[in-house]
């Protein structure tokens, strides 16, 4: 790890001012991404601002929905009574991620900003990585790939956004709250992330110094059913090869509302409006689920190592839809 200076802050404005004035400083929350990548030599900030003692921890609820402080840990959020009782999709996405130890450290803000698990990105001895060194190429498209994305990618970068939670949150229309030197703003999570596109190094709309202060999940219709399904190489403690977050409102057998998030396959946590369009207003059936899944993976861009994900993602979504719609269709 390169040398750095450390300071702990207790005020939100203090944190924001320090970072905004200092391009070579980074925030430190749970550290499970930040310190990991500093040990790998991928990140080398000159200063770390420890934000873990900021008063941004805990969950509250009002008419606008559930407000989650950015420094709430993954375990704390999973244990929240509203999440446990009414939002299985969030609880499952959290508890199927990482390990209990990591979830006690990892914060919700940090989770949304976790970096790609691409092994070429994480290895600074690999020279070609457009995410690390813009313009240098992409080693993953030519070499072994597996934990990589097939949607929102191109030959410039196939890195995956591996957050499980973010997949559930895009399906729930969650909104991120940001605070910077020029005030606060709210951004729908679906507009927070950027596809790899021409600049894979820019992953989201956050400005340097802007702090995520929290996330809001708007209320769901009372009849909504939700669920998260994660498919992976190991039974536990592993990132998704494919995952699906599903929110359905059923009227008898008809799907009145559908929201679909897909994980393990996108350069950003993927919201599939295409699948939702097929589902909304249709009678629930295996056939319609398969049609929706096919619509979701239209436009997939694969390399030999990721080609299997086109089929896997569809089967994952079909199974998740079956589970949440409550039918053995």
């Amino acid at each position: 790890m390169l040398p750095f200076e450390y300071a702990r802050v207790t005020g939100v404005d203090e944190a924001v001012n320090l970072l905004a004035a200092d391009p070579s400083a980074s925030y430190l929350a749970g550290g499970t991404t930040q310190l990991d990548l500093m040990k790998d030599g991928v990140l080398g900030p000159e200063r770390l601002v420890d934000i873990t003692r900021l008063p941004l921890r805990g969950v509250t609820r009002d008419a606008d929905g559930l407000h989650i402080g950015a420094l709430t840990t993954m375990e704390e959020l999973a244990a929240d009574p509203v999440v446990a009782g009414e939002l299985p999709v969030v609880r499952e996405a959290l508890l199927l991620g990482a390990s209990a130890q990591l979830r006690n450290m990892a914060t919700i803000g940090g989770n949304l900003l976790q970096r790609a698990r691409c092994r070429y990105f994480r290895d600074p001895t690999v020279p070609d990585c457009n995410k690390r060194e813009p313009g240098s190429g992409c080693a993953a498209v030519r070499n072994t790939a597996r934990m990589h994305a097939i949607l929102g990618v191109s030959e410039r970068c196939i890195a995956l956004h591996a957050s499980d939670l973010a997949v559930a949150l895009v399906a729930l229309d969650a909104v991120v709250r940001l605070h910077g030197t020029s005030g606060s703003r709210s951004v729908p999570l679906t507009q927070f992330y950027r596809e790899a596109g021409t600049s894979p190094d820019v992953e989201n709309v956050l400005l340097h110094g802007e702090l995520i202060t929290g996330v809001t999940i708007p209320p769901l219709p009372a009849e909504a059913a939700t669920g998260y399904l994660k498919v992976r190489d190991r039974a536990s403690y592993e990132f998704a090869l494919a995952s699906a977050a599903v929110v359905l409102v059923m009227r008898d057998d008809v799907i009145a509302q559908a929201r679909v998030g897909l994980g393990g396959i996108g350069s950003k946590p993927w919201r599939s409006l295409e699948a939702e369009q097929v589902l909304t207003g249709a009678a629930a059936s295996g056939e319609i689920f398969r049609e929706a899944a096919a619509a979701a993976v239209q436009g997939a861009w694969t390399v030999p190592g990721t080609a299997f994900k086109v089929e896997l993602a569809q089967r994952t979504l079909v199974r998740a839809l079956r589970n949440v719609s409550g039918g053995a269709r």
Partner: peptide, 26 residues
């Protein structure tokens, strides 16, 4: 030393955490 094996597990304020991805100063 990278947060993947759990050998460094300790408790901080009663919760299990990984001491390899926690700065002493924190």
């Amino acid at each position: 030393d990278q947060g993947t094996c759990g050998a460094c597990t300790v408790h901080a304020d009663g919760r299990r955490v990984l001491s390899c991805l926690t700065l002493a100063a924190q």
